[in-house]
């Protein structure tokens, strides 16, 4: 049960959140212009980092805001050194 720092509500139990995977994956500016391969990249391919991972969480049972967190995927340690702001994908 991780303690996840919601930038709006403070640290809360993991069960209040929904996981969103890798952060900063942008929707293509013009999807019709990208190749099938690149479109597949956008749809299905996400980094699967072992180590420090920038990822998205949604405070589903709280403020419903999405935000990013830096977490070590080997230890679940969450780094509080950056501001957990609302994100772009």
């Amino acid at each position: 049960m991780m303690l996840i720092p919601c930038p709006w509500c403070g640290p809360r139990n993991e069960t209040e959140f929904h996981y969103g995977g890798q952060a900063d994956v942008s929707y293509p500016a013009d999807p019709q212009a990208v190749s099938d391969v690149d479109w597949a990249r956008f749809l299905f391919f996400r980094a699967n980092t072992k180590g420090i991972f920038t990822e998205r969480w949604n405070h589903q049972a709280g403020c419903r805001r999405w935000f990013t967190v830096r977490r070590d995927t080997t230890t679940n340690e969450i780094f509080h050194d950056d501001s957990h702001e609302a994100v772009t994908r």
């Binding site: 929707y27 998205r56 949604n58 419903r64 609302a86």
Partner: peptide, 14 residues
Amino acid sequence: VLEWLEDWLQTEWP
């Protein structure tokens, strides 16, 4: 659906 809409609204089209 609500979570899905919020996701796009907040993170892609803020």
